[in-house]
Every structure is written in C-alpha cells, then in structure tokens.
C-alpha cells in the first residue's frame, strides 16, 4: 500500500470542524423549530459560524498538499 501521510493529517484536521459544523446546524435547526420567524436572522449566524468552523478543515486540506 502506498500513499501520503499528509492526507492522514487532513483526515485528522477534518474531525474537529465536522463535529463543530454538526453542532452549529443542530442548534440552527433547534432554533428554527422553536421560533420559525427567526429563520432569516439565524441563517446568517449559522452560515457565519459554519464558515469559521470550516476554516480549520480547509487549512488541513491545503497543508496536506503543501507538505506533500
């Protein structure tokens, strides 16, 4: 079996954001279910949080290719 260990690093770096994004959207769904009229406001906040949490996974991806 051949491959690159850097890709494993990407896998590790994707765990945290994966959990984080799951929590963010769980909270968003909860919020909308409780108060449907707050959807517009919550959506912006949820997507902002999603973008910030995702950054770590993207770092991992880019670094996996950089240190190849």
């Amino acid at each position: 079996m051949s491959g690159n260990i850097a890709i494993l690093g990407y896998g590790l770096s994707a765990i945290g954001p994966g959990i984080g994004i799951g929590l963010i959207f769980a909270a968003y769904i909860n919020g909308v279910a409780r108060q449907p009229e707050a959807r517009g406001m919550l959506q912006t906040i949820a997507i902002l949080g999603f973008a910030l949490a995702e950054a770590l996974a993207i770092f991992g991806l880019v670094l996996a290719f950089v240190f190849k």
């Binding site: 973008a51 910030l52 995702e54 950054a55 993207i58 770092f59 991806l61 880019v62």
Partner: peptide, 13 residues
C-alpha cells in the same frame, strides 16, 4: 488568510 483559503480550498477540493 482564511478568507482566501476557504474559497480556494472549497473550489479546488
């Protein structure tokens, strides 16, 4: 850095 890498990373990947 994250602003540019996020866009790049998503499109690239």
């Amino acid at each position: 850095l994250t602003l540019s890498l996020r866009l790049f990373g998503n499109m690239f990947a």
